[in-house]
Simulated assay, not measured.
Amino acid sequence: MCALGEVVHLWQRDIRDDERCGCGARFSQCTFWRRVGALAFGGWHNVDVDRVHYLQAAVERTRHIPRLATAVEAPEEVHEYAEYYTRVYAAAAEVSGARLVVDSSKHSALAHVLRWSSDLDLRVLHVVRDARGVAYSWTKTVQRPEADGSDEMTRYSPGRSALLWNAHNAAFGLLARRGVAVHRIRYEEFLADPRAALTTIAEFAGVPLGDGDLDFLQPDHADLRIGHSAAGNPMRFTVGRLPLRRDDAWVRALPSRQRRLVGTVCGPMLRAYGYPLSAPEAK
């Protein structure tokens, strides 16, 4: 398996802004990504980033999901946009020797675009977390070290987070009803038994696990090697031991008014995913 990070951001943050790869090197200096670019496009300089941005705006927005989900045939622009991704995936698989590449992009609209690609065996891992925990996380100030400046990760108000949580999770449910293989797991379930969760995920992805494949994983930590994630959470720069713990800080830190707001807006889907509407005890 080869983790690519959030490829949806590769076009701007990496090709254009030359931010840091998960390995620590500038994108333009990373041997892995240079080889991927050469194989996929004859070099990243051949990618028309402005065209990608145009296609992104034209087809890969949450508001486009109903059209993408109900169309009998997708517009040519959808196929053109998906082609950029399939070329990156195929090149990354060849360079890494992996049989599975993992794009951890969180955009549900991108998954709806990719379902139209006949060159992909698309399988979607739908990770769900309690909406109130998500809302609290989006309020925190987190620096983006790859930018080498004062840039911070995007922040949203709890109300905005609640609306996005509903929209994206509903979109992944709709994707499953359109015949795409989707496996849902709750964040809290993963942390309760990471080894069992990864075993199930590997089976879903069609990747047999051999002896020792999960030796990096223990009940309370994971031992991580250097990776080549193009974009994503700053923890992608972590190498070595990463503690695994359930983060319930929101139970104490998210103001009760905001907790009630998110719980009300997301109540039906929280119940559908098995979450209590009353706040759990912090652990």
Rank of each mutant, 00 (worst) to 15 (best):
A111P: 09
A93E: 04
R16L: 15
K283M: 12
R67T: 15
F216M: 13
T31N: 13
F27D: 02
V182A: 08
I65G: 03
G210H: 13
H228S: 09
H79V: 07
A92P: 08
A98F: 01
D50I: 05
W33I: 11
F237I: 03
L175F: 06
D148M: 12
T86V: 09
S105R: 00
Q218F: 12
R241Y: 06
G173E: 11
E6Q: 03
V239H: 08
D148S: 14
A253S: 12
E77C: 02
R13I: 00
D50E: 15
E6A: 08
G267M: 09
T86M: 00
R144L: 12
R155H: 05
L125T: 00
L122W: 08
Y273W: 15
L100I: 13
W11R: 08
D193P: 15
R35M: 04
A111L: 07
A167Y: 10
V7G: 09
G5C: 01
A92L: 01
H183G: 10
L125C: 10
G240F: 02
P219A: 09
R132S: 01
P158F: 02
R186M: 06
I65P: 00
W44R: 12
A40R: 12
T238L: 09
R177G: 14
H126N: 10
G206D: 02
L214R: 09
Y85K: 14
D18V: 07
Y275P: 04
G42P: 04
D119T: 13
L191P: 10
S150L: 14
A282T: 14
A279D: 13
E152V: 14
S28D: 04
S28I: 04
H45D: 14
T70E: 03
A167H: 10
A91N: 00
A167Q: 13
R26S: 07
R129F: 10
A170N: 14
P158V: 10
S96E: 03
E76F: 07
V78I: 06
V8W: 08
T139V: 11
E73G: 13
A92T: 09
V36T: 03
F190A: 12
F41S: 09
F204D: 03
H168T: 15
V134Y: 11
T238G: 01
R61V: 14
R160K: 13
V102R: 09
V78L: 03
H126T: 06
L244G: 06
L217D: 08
A82C: 00
A58R: 15
G22K: 02
E80L: 04
D213N: 06
F216P: 14
R236Q: 08
Y84S: 03
Q258M: 10
L244W: 09
R34H: 06
L191C: 03
R115V: 00
P255A: 05
Y84R: 06
F216W: 15
R115T: 08
L114H: 07
A90G: 06
G212Q: 07
R129G: 13
F237Q: 05
Q29W: 04
P145H: 05
A253T: 04
P66A: 08
H168W: 12
R20F: 10
A205S: 14
S117K: 11
H64G: 07
H9R: 12
D18G: 12
A38V: 12
R99L: 10
D48Y: 06
G232D: 01
G267L: 02
